[in-house]
Computed example of a mutant assay.
Amino acid sequence: MTESNQDIAQMAQAILRAHGARFGLAESPATAQFTSQGSTYRAAKTACMALGFIEIDAECVARAWQAQTDRLGRFDATLWPVSPLDFGMQVLPVAQRPDAFAPCPRQLGLYAVLPDAKWTGRCARAGVPTVQLRFKSDDDLAIEQEVHAAVDAVRGTGALLFINDHWRAAIAAGAYGVHLGQEDLDALRPEELSQIRVAGLRLGVSTHGYAEMVRADAVSPSYLAMGAVFPTTLKKMATAPQGLARLDAYARLTSQYPQVAIGGIDAERLPAVLATGVGSVAVVRAIIAADDPEGACRELGLVIDSATGRRGGQ
């Protein structure tokens, strides 16, 4: 039996009643463009647009909701999709995939994103377990020197060093891992991605919603970063702040990965972020703009380690 437009509208309203308070309603939602005739799909996409999801993510959730309905044999407006199977993600656990990148600790703890090698060394010596060098330059020699300096700066501290973007320099310097944004990931040829994998570097990937999580899962990275959770002035974001409700949903979907929440997170917001179950929180201004950066590292680290159960950097 095919549902009428009225039935589909009622299904969409049921989804909004079940999840509107959690996600919030968009002030002026865009009109959904449909690529399938499935009734659950159409209802879910209409609802997701009303909940403020961008088109590509609304499409992703709608298709997952249709798959969930087909799998269960019934439509349930209260059951927000969280199964990787329904999203078309890989079935095998990451550790069993032949294309998986080297694993990293499930609980990465406090994750400091830092502008230069001096800051990475300073935070590593202050006990931050995971640091990322986000060095911005178009000078290849300067990049190479800064990456090598960062590797030297964290040596002996136990800190895990990820290099943002500059994967060739990271391989040459022997860094622990590389972090890539979606555009960086899309720009890599398969053989270049393979070079990072074969070198044994861990790979972290930034995601800003469902579609990007599905895209990242396709390459079996070491961890997923999810954000921006809250507004941030550090960089122009392509999407609006995701908020805690979406972060919670994302964490459920990607639970087999180590997860890093990022974007506008400070000491006050930290407990609510950790309550979603993520095992790591990335910060920038909360450290580098603090009057006492080392003190901020200790304070934030203790909160995260207590909430995630990290012991001895594990």
Rank of each mutant, 00 (worst) to 15 (best):
I304P: 00
E192Y: 12
A112T: 02
E191T: 13
A150R: 04
S28H: 14
A149I: 09
M11D: 04
R202S: 12
G174F: 03
A211D: 13
D7C: 07
D266H: 07
Q195K: 11
W80M: 10
Y210D: 08
A64E: 01
P190I: 03
A238R: 15
G181F: 11
L203Y: 12
I288L: 13
R269W: 05
D140R: 15
G88W: 00
A26V: 00
R311T: 13
D217M: 05
D138S: 14
V281M: 03
Q68D: 06
L188V: 07
Y176K: 04
L234V: 07
R125A: 08
Q242F: 01
A77W: 03
G24A: 03
E268W: 10
E59T: 08
K235V: 00
T232F: 06
A44V: 07
Q6H: 14
T254E: 09
D291K: 07
M11G: 06
Q256A: 13
A187Y: 10
A150Q: 03
G277D: 08
A289V: 03
V283K: 07
Q66P: 02
A149K: 02
G88T: 10
G52E: 07
A26K: 09
E294N: 09
D217Y: 05
M213I: 10
W65Q: 05
S83K: 13
V198L: 15
P115F: 09
L193K: 11
A50K: 07
M226H: 13
R168G: 05
T31H: 15
A159H: 06
A9I: 01
A286S: 12
A172G: 05
V260W: 08
D152Y: 04
M49I: 02
E183V: 11
D266E: 10
M213R: 07
R63A: 15
T276M: 02
V94N: 13
L108G: 05
A30E: 14
G277P: 03
W167R: 07
A159F: 00
S255C: 10
T232D: 06
S4V: 07
A126H: 08
K236G: 08
G227F: 01
R106H: 09
S194Q: 15
A282K: 04
D248F: 03
A240P: 10
T239A: 09
S36T: 10
G88C: 02
A251D: 08
L25P: 08
D152R: 15
S255Q: 14
F230I: 04
T157V: 05
A307V: 04
R202N: 10
Q314C: 12
L244A: 07
G20F: 09
M11N: 09
D248C: 08
G181L: 10
P84K: 01
G156M: 01
F162M: 09
S83A: 14
Q182Y: 06
L108M: 15
